[in-house]
């Protein structure tokens, strides 16, 4: 196989595999979109997924070496607090990210 054919085949198979995982539930639920179980999942599953996505985003943060994950923890708490305070997504994300970058670059927590 030429390098271009290999790359093209790899991209094609990745496209098919990714689309399959995203489309399968819609195909399975084609008829049952208003089934009580589906409606129940539609209401409560997003809350569980968001919680897991937060965990997933920080899963590789080292906890045993300084700053023991504190940079992330502080920035996450501040993001949530600012959001509860003003409920303005842009403000919360900007404040949290700004604080995170500042904490990381100032090296304030690195000496713990």
């Amino acid at each position: 196989m030429s390098p271009d054919a290999y790359l093209l085949a790899a991209i094609a198979v990745m496209t098919a595999a990714t689309f399959a995982t995203r489309a399968l539930p819609f195909l399975l639920l084609r008829r049952g979109a208003d089934h009580p179980v589906v409606l129940f999942l539609g209401r409560y599953l997003p809350a569980a997924v968001m919680t897991l996505l937060v965990l997933y985003a920080v899963k590789d943060v080292p906890l045993r070496t300084a700053p023991y994950g504190l940079t992330h923890a502080i920035a996450i708490v501040v993001t949530a607090a600012v959001h509860i305070w003003r409920r303005n997504a842009l403000l919360s994300i900007a404040a949290g990210t700004g604080l995170f970058i500042w904490l990381q670059r100032s090296g304030l927590l690195a000496g713990l």
């Binding site: 209401r43 409560y44 997003p46 809350a47 968001m50 919680t51 996505l53 937060v54 985003a57 920080v58 992330h72 920035a75 996450i76 993001t79 949530a80 959001h83 509860i84 997504a89 919360s92 994300i93 949290g96 990210t97 995170f100 970058i101 990381q104 670059r105």
Partner: peptide, 21 residues
Amino acid sequence: GLDFVLTALFVVLAVEQWYAV
């Protein structure tokens, strides 16, 4: 450090889910 925006986005959406459920 800029990749923290995605973490912050998930945090904000989790808080929004709290208000929803």
